[in-house]
Design a binder for these strands. Structure first.
Lengths: 198, 198
DNA sequence: TGGCAAACGGAACAGCGTTCCGTATAGTTC
DNA sequence: GAACTATACGGAACGCTGTTCCGTTTGCCA
């Protein structure tokens, strides 16, 4: 569920980076574990102190390892984001049409977002602190999305020229809101349907 | 830009309600004025103290007149929301097709939202404090939107059964995010296009 | 003009993110 | 194994929020 940490020079990491102390590596792992649990229980906006308490460390330790909340969020979800990005080629190969692959891939992205309380909101936020988060997601997912869009456009299924960044951001926005009568999946479906040529 | 206040029993208001003191009415007006200016400068999330300072009153006075931030926001924008709702019938009468009227009306709503920093975000928030805001907007705008949707469905332009609340909420979500490459209008256009039967 | 209910102002409190520095300790060197 | 140093830790402290509360002021009416 959680990986070894963002910039941590594990034995397999960057060779020239100085090796971190054992307690530092232990705490980083504990923090990622605690943060993942806290995000699940209380959303990604959970107070920093709560995460620190769960991990059994002081708040200073959080900031040392993860200067911004975005770094922590990225640390927790990087594997899942990566997996989502890597799922695109297979979907493209297995689906009957590129647009079906696009739909399936976006469904997967939406599933990821709606199960993480507040994550979509954080991604959409234009706060400087979340710039990193925004950037990280986009860096990984935009190329995957672009391939799907290109394939669908080449097949004549959708109008060409859609910016994958913009589309993904819109999907994120649609996933950010919660209401009893609101189904983000349905609205995203409408959005993707709107891409189709008629 | 700002009206006389939410529940304020002005001479023309509720007959049985006790008339408020002159300074209270003056302060309520000043607060609405100050809030409108502050929202424009710093978004609807501007600190309460800033609004109080602009209006030349203490923070206690704000809470007396507007128990929640949502009440203040509603007070500031109620006229514009009302006007938006009332524009629907005319659009329906003047447009060549119901779907065109729907598009135009939603464009108007989007224009309203994107020019109010943070308003869409506040509307989408599921915080209890913003329940009021959410409810207010929906109460006014849902009937207007429903008429347009019904007309378009009756004309066979869109699939019937779309929940106007859900659609409006989705539009709000799309307007909540900001990014250099992101154009909420375009994405809302995609969403509305997705409604069309093909 | 006197009195009282209404309204005011801002101090005070609680919860948050963030910084900072005295203290503890892992790793290295002798 | 002991001493030393850079690294890392913990949590108090600070500043900025929303919100409450109560002593003081003031508009209004008799």
């Amino acid at each position: 569920m959680v990986d070894g940490g963002a910039g941590s020079p594990t034995p397999g990491g960057r060779a020239d980076a100085p090796r971190k102390r054992a307690d530092a590596r232990r705490n980083e792992a504990a923090l990622l574990e605690a943060a993942a649990a806290a995000f699940l229980d209380a959303g990604v906006d959970v107070p920093v102190r709560d995460i620190a308490a769960r991990a059994g460390v002081g708040v200073g330790t959080i900031y040392r390892h993860f200067p911004t909340r975005a770094d922590l969020i990225v640390g927790v979800y990087r594997h899942q984001v990566q997996a989502c990005a890597e799922a695109a080629p297979a979907l493209l190969a297995d689906s009957v049409t590129p647009h079906a692959a696009l739909t399936a891939w976006i469904d997967r992205f939406v599933d990821f977002l709606v199960t993480k309380h507040g994550l979509a909101g954080a991604m959409s936020s234009d706060t400087a602190a979340f710039e990193t988060l925004h950037g990280y997601f986009l860096d990984r997912l935009v190329p995957a999305c672009a391939r799907l869009l290109d394939a669908a456009a080449a097949a004549g299924e959708i109008r060409p020229g859609t910016d994958p960044r913009e589309l993904l951001f819109a999907v994120g926005n649609l996933c950010a809101g919660r209401a009893p009568y609101y189904d983000a999946r349905r609205m995203v479906g409408l959005l993707v349907a709107g891409l189709r040529l008629r």
